[in-house]
């Protein structure tokens, strides 16, 4: 009985600083109105993406030969059956856009998780062990960063074969050097601090020191970089789709939709305007959140 009490006390003792941190974080974050607005838009997009099969009025890939290139409902010739009009083969724009949110958010999540885990692991190793392993790792990262990311991703997709999964792998690979550099720099800065030295003296092994002791104190810049990468990943994946190297038709990915719509730009403005607008809104919302996170997490910039 008493041990259980101790346990719960210990737990609550552990949790309250977290809660305090969270409260402090929210205090600074919510001061940035743009960031809060961005967060709400982002949450709305996530909900729409999750509920796509229920909120989309039509099937995103079913073609209606009687409704080719219908304008949005407010224009002459439009109908409320297809609120945002139809594309050149008679698919509902709105439904395709709704399903497209799934792809874009999925791309962002997968790329960030991939780049983050690989980048943190390599960065921890480089920053903790230093020496030749650090030199080799950093030179390899320099090589990746020497290429424009989109070009390298394009060429990687050419090697792997066009497609959404390969595009995501390519983009994650191109992004991870940023996480390696950030992690390495923070680890190097933290490593000589007293709390790390003392836990080493107490007998913590390298793995524990790296992951449990040092890493949590390097998270702030990584979180900010992760948000930035999230939005860039969506942009780059859409760009690859636009160039014909990302998701392949009939996938309702926004960049791919733009590529399919290109030849109709002077005839049907809506097939070009809406997918791009969807990309812009999503990326903008995430970048707004990113700005807010930076303000709230970076003590150097805090209330300067």
């Amino acid at each position: 009985m008493s041990s259980a009490d101790d346990f719960s006390n210990g737990r609550s003792g552990q949790w309250s600083p977290w809660r305090a941190m969270l409260a402090e974080f929210w205090y600074y974050f919510s001061e940035n109105k743009g960031a809060v607005a961005g967060l709400f838009v982002f949450i709305a997009l996530v909900v729409i993406a999750l509920l796509a099969p229920f909120v989309a009025p039509h099937d995103p890939v079913i073609q209606n030969r009687d409704a080719l290139l219908l304008p949005p409902f407010w224009q002459e010739g439009g109908s409320t059956t297809y609120l945002l009009g139809t594309d050149p083969v008679g698919r509902d724009m709105l439904s395709r856009l709704i399903y497209g949110a799934r792809f874009s958010l999925f791309i962002g999540v997968v790329v960030v998780i991939g780049a983050l885990t690989v980048g943190i692991t390599i960065g921890l190793i480089a920053g903790y062990f230093r020496g030749w392993i650090d030199i080799v790792i950093m030179r390899v990262m320099d090589v990746i960063l020497a290429f424009p990311s989109l070009l390298l991703a394009l060429v990687l997709v050419a090697v792997l074969g066009p497609g959404l999964i390969n595009a995501m792998i390519a983009i994650a690979l191109v992004y991870q050097p940023h996480f390696v550099r950030l992690t390495r720099a923070s680890v190097m800065a933290e490593k000589t601090k007293d709390y790390v030295v003392s836990s080493r003296v107490v007998g913590a092994g390298p793995l524990r020191l790296m992951v449990r002791t040092i890493l949590p104190n390097c998270l702030a810049p990584l979180i900010v970089q992760a948000t930035l990468s999230f939005s860039s990943a969506i942009l780059d994946a859409a760009a690859l789709g636009f160039l014909g190297m990302g998701a392949q038709p009939p996938t309702p990915e926004w960049g791919t939709m733009l590529a399919e719509a290109r030849e109709f730009i002077l005839r049907a403005w809506w097939v070009v305007t809406f997918p791009g607008l969807a990309i812009l809104i999503t990326v903008l919302a995430i970048n707004l959140v990113g700005d807010g996170l930076r303000d709230a997490l970076d003590p150097k910039l805090k209330r300067s």
């Binding site: 939005s231 859409a238 636009f242 002077l266 305007t273 791009g276 990326v283």
Partner: peptide, 25 residues
């Protein structure tokens, strides 16, 4: 700064198409 953030978030391949619609079309 708001405009700058929109510019920073811009999918430029779409931006190009929009400008073509407006200025060329």
């Amino acid at each position: 700064m708001g405009t700058a953030l929109v510019g920073f978030s811009m999918p430029i391949f779409w931006w190009g198409l929009l400008l073509i619609i407006l200025f060329s079309g």
